[in-house]
Design a protein around this nucleic acid. Structure first.
Lengths: 214, 214
DNA sequence: TTCTTATTAGTACGAGTGTACTCACATAAT
DNA sequence: ATTATGTGAGTACACTCGTACTAATAAGAA
């Protein structure tokens, strides 16, 4: 704070007294911590999402984690954000159109492999926590809204591809699809199904087939 | 333990030395505790389901709770059992037939009033816990199976009432109904909808309507 | 080099946890 | 009245929790 402005020397520099210390890759740190948090959430549940536990899973000191996330609420919030980012990234990378796009888009929200299962378990754990922790509600709603948008987009894509019967109500079908998707996901979570023995994709496909006709 | 068999007295009784002490209404106790647990689960979440917390909510001493439920796992298990019992009792009390019965039957599984919402929140909290606590899995599966049976029964009732299109696959429709029901329930839980502004019943009814036709 | 910061390990505090006791008291069957 | 038991209140132990420090070390920019 105290700048030693030496007025008796010709070269007085009021600027650029910053030594520019150790570089920080804060982004990578927080990302690593949040991903470790997802692993912890799936393995140990909500009670495992503690400062010491996550720090150990990340492989850093508890104090370092405390510097990246000043409070555990910030950590929980960022976990929900990370889940949204990861799903969004996967969906954006899809290079498909029409019904095929819709299929893959919705499958990204079902626990069909380790990664998606981990995300979904973490999402449900934090979502349930938000039922009794109002601080977490905004973040949970944000993630939920993203899923809502995906379902609405799915219906629109089907309609544009001519695979959505014009007599149906797009608004209603989008909301029904959202509910069905959540239900299928829960069913898959609880039964701990293996990736390929799962009946989730066929169930979803059958429902989408119906939307094409009256 | 030590029986004073006085052999010098004529009337020696080797049996019936039990004084038969204080009467117990253990059943009412456990029920009161479990119901308090549901209240705690909805208000404070899983972290509130502690020995001291539940005892305080029940209005008894912690030691008394500990006598009724020797371990907290037993308490959590009984909560799931109580939820199943309460829903089963409500469903059994329905005096309806055909579509009306199906409607009311399924509405018993949606959070349409304080009681049903409390049950559902508790069920979800404990269900999520069972994802990382294998001890709780059997009880959670038992409750889930009960819901499955209800959905299958709903389809069968519709079929017998002639409100289920014969071209549809009952097995698939039962599983889809289950998923949809869970999804609608989640949607209702998170949005914290008021009892009457809810769109859950109409959404469910609309789906059931579809089952009657091709 | 020097300077500045991030990271680390460690400690500490107050609180809450499950579990396991003890002891006085009230109550119902004998 | 006597007796065995359930209850309530309290205490204790060994944890873990979030949070907040300190001091030492490591590493990059000047």
């Amino acid at each position: 704070m105290a700048e030693e402005g030496c007025s008796h020397i010709a070269g007085c520099y009021y600027v650029a007294l910053k030594p520019m210390p150790r570089r920080i890759d804060a982004e990578a740190r927080t990302a690593a911590i949040a991903e470790a948090s997802l692993r912890v959430l799936e393995r140990d549940g909500l009670s495992g999402l503690s400062v010491r536990g996550v720090a150990a899973e990340t492989g850093i000191a508890a104090a370092s984690l405390r510097r990246a996330f000043a409070t555990q609420h910030a950590l929980r919030e960022y976990c929900l954000q990370l889940i949204e980012d990861r799903v969004t990234a996967r969906v954006s990378a899809l290079d498909l159109t029409g019904r095929a796009l819709v299929d893959e888009l919705l499958l990204q929200l079902l626990p069909l492999d380790k990664e998606r299962r981990m995300e979904l378990v973490a999402q449900v754990q934090l979502g349930v926590l938000s039922l009794t922790d109002s601080e977490l509600v905004p973040a949970a709603i944000r993630l939920s809204n993203a899923v809502d948008r995906a379902c609405h987009a799915a219906v629109m894509i089907l309609a544009e591809a001519g695979q959505f019967y014009s007599g149906r109500d797009p608004e209603y079908e989008a909301r029904r699809l959202r509910a069905l998707l959540d239900g299928i996901a829960m069913q898959g979570l609880w039964s701990g199904e293996l990736p390929e023995s799962s009946e989730m994709p066929s169930m979803l496909a059958r429902h989408l087939d119906e939307l094409a006709g009256p």
